[in-house]
Structure formats: structure tokens, C-alpha cells
Design a protein around this nucleic acid. Sequence first.
DNA 1: CTTGGATTACTAAGCGCTTAGTCAGTTCAG
DNA 2: CTGAACTGACTAAGCGCTTAGTAATCCAAG
Lengths: 200, 200
Amino acid sequence: MTTDASSSARADATRARLFEAAVRAFAEKGFHGTTTRDIATAAGMSPAALYVHHRSKEELLYLITRTGHEGTLRLVRETAASCDDPAEALRRLVREFAVHHARGNVRARVVNYELAALSPEHLAEIRELRRAVSREFRSLVERGAAAGVFDVPDPRAAATALLSLGVDIARWYREDGDWSPEDVADRYVRVALRIVGADG
Amino acid sequence: MTTDASSSARADATRARLFEAAVRAFAEKGFHGTTTRDIATAAGMSPAALYVHHRSKEELLYLITRTGHEGTLRLVRETAASCDDPAEALRRLVREFAVHHARGNVRARVVNYELAALSPEHLAEIRELRRAVSREFRSLVERGAAAGVFDVPDPRAAATALLSLGVDIARWYREDGDWSPEDVADRYVRVALRIVGADG
DNA sequence: CTTGGATTACTAAGCGCTTAGTCAGTTCAG
DNA sequence: CTGAACTGACTAAGCGCTTAGTAATCCAAG
């Protein structure tokens, strides 16, 4: 017995293979540069199988993008709230955010750089999730400033810079480089503390 | 009489219109999401006219990308070398780089985010230009550290962060936002000085 | 200044091919 | 034996790019 009328273990596994194949293909060649054949073939199936599990190529991108943003938002919310001390919370947030974007750079590239290929409705929904992530960064910086732990002349600019640094890791990070995801995280934590004026 | 056998004022103007139309289209929809008809129509001509002035769609992207990178490299080199004091040179570099990416965010988006659509040969050439830009940032940070003007535990990480902050402006900056290019630049100069430990 | 052949800038039409998506039919697990 | 999973063969639309030809411009020679 399956727990859901519209899912079986086999279907779930196939869906996951299509999902993963699409992530890799979109990351490498972009949404419009990827064909449904690319995705299906990489998942070991015929092109038609894609439409058994997903309504369209765009729906697949939407699924990847939404899942990715929801995961990021959850990570950011939980980490920012994991500690009362703003300095320690920022250390954790920047560390987790950097590791997330470095280790998951392939997924993160699709999630952050293929937004223009979404339908207007889907894009609007994703924009809301992005605003929520942005708000978490800003409110943590403001919390630290209000507590006198951070020395920030412009909290909004500091939050923008912190978020920007993290997201952009997905663009430049490569597995074959000199830094592990944790190496990047360590370095960026120190950079972040300087940006908010909490480094001694 | 024209000064060059392969150029007339009229042809140059047409080429420029195609170039600008391509920049806008590539920025909005990506290289693969843009058709040669989109570009030609936006430039007020028939699709075939594109091939009078450019060999292929990819050559047009290459032209945009190369011109953009050469411009950025020139700006970075001249600004970094414009002052002996590393702190003042960094202020100028971060300011100019930020304004460049904010004001020219449409062009910069194509230049930085459509690299995957280039041919392997063209991509290799562009990568070389990017490495040169990267080197400028790094050597300025190292110069400041050697002079004792900057306090940086990890110059490479600091240079990576500074470059990343600047490039990523092209992704998030919007004309209809609250900040002018100069506003972004002012704020980022302060952030940069903190990153290199030269803010007091 | 006029004229007419050469040159340049451009277009209408469309070729060969690829695309996203469909559907009737087959396979296979439970 | 049933229904879900999957495929082969297909279509309509759209793609980058080419070709053959036209309109506008240029620049001697008369």
C-alpha cells in the first residue's frame, strides 16, 4: 500500500531521477539551452516519460526552483533563530549559507540564475520567498545593531553585502578549486564579522 | 572616402543597433531564450540583416562579452594604478567597479552570466580576461597588506569577496530601486575598507 | 552637372533541422 | 488481470541561417 494515491515508490524514484538530471542540465546549459531529450536521456528514459511525471519543462524548473528556495529559507530561518547572541547567530548563518551555496553550487546556480525562464505567476511566488530570505539577513543585522553587538552605519547595506556574498558563491565556486565548502565558510565568517563591525 | 574598407558610417550605426538590441535581449531572456528574430526586429530590421554584420548569433554574444571584459579590465587596471596609496586606490577601484556594474547592469548581466553559451575557444579567451581582472584585485590587496595599510589575515579571501560583491551587483541591481549607482558605490567602499581592515 | 555601372545595405522567402509536447499502444509490477 | 509506468512514432511550431534579388548610394567618365 502506498501512502498517497498519486505516488508509488517506483514513480517517486523516477521523478527524483528526472529532477536530478534536470538540475544538472539546467545548471550546465541553462533552461532554454536544455532540451527535454537531454533531461530524459540523462535520467535513462525516453523523452515522453518526462510528461508522465511533470506537466512541462517549465513546471520542472519551477519545482526545482521552489524546492530550492524553500530549503534555503528554512535553513536561514532556523540558523538565524538558533542563538540569542547576534554575533554567534551571524557566524552560524554565514557559515551555513556559504556551505549551502558551495556544496550545492550546481542546484544553487539553477535556483538563482534561471528565474527569468519561469512563468510570471511562478516568478512572483519565488520572488516572495527571496524577499523572506532577504528579510532574515536584514533583521539579524538590525538585531545585532540594536543590541550594540554590531557596529554598522548602514544595516541595510551590510545585509545586502552579506546576502550577495553568499549567493554569488554559487557562481564562482568549483569542486576542483583549492577551497572546500568549509574553507569558504570559515573565510566568509571572518569577512562577515568585519562587515558588521563585530571582529574585536 | 571611408577610412576603412570594411566599414561605413551607416554600417557602423546598424552594427551598433544590432549590438544594443542583442545586449538587451540576452540580458532579459538569456542567449538561448533569444531568437535572431528578436534581435533583428528590436533593431528595426529583417532577420537576415543580422548576418550581413555578424557571422552568427554566438559571434554576436562573443563580441558583446569580449568588449565588456576588455572594458572592465581597462577600468580595473587604470583605477588600481591611479594612486600610490593602497587605501585610496582601493576606494577608487571599489567605487568605479560598483558604479560600472550598477549603471551597466544590463550589459554586465550578459557579460557575466552567459559565458556557458560561448564556444570553447571563445570561452577560453574570456576566462583569460577574467583571470586578469581577478589578479588586479588580489595584487592591490596584497600591496596594501605589504605596505601595512591593510590588516588582512587572508588577502586571497578578501580579494575574492571584493570581486564577488562587485560582480553580483549586476544580478540584483535595478534602476527602479532606492539606490543610485553612486549610492551603492559609497556603501560598498565602506564595506570594502572594513573587509581589508583599513577603516580606522 | 549628368549619367550609368559597381558596390553596399538590406529584404522576402524559405530550407533543413530541432524543439516541446502528444498519443496510441506495450510492458511490467502487484 | 489490472492499472500505472513507459515508449516509439508523431506533429505543429519555431529555430538559425542561406539564398536570390532589390533599393539606395557612390564615384568615375562624358
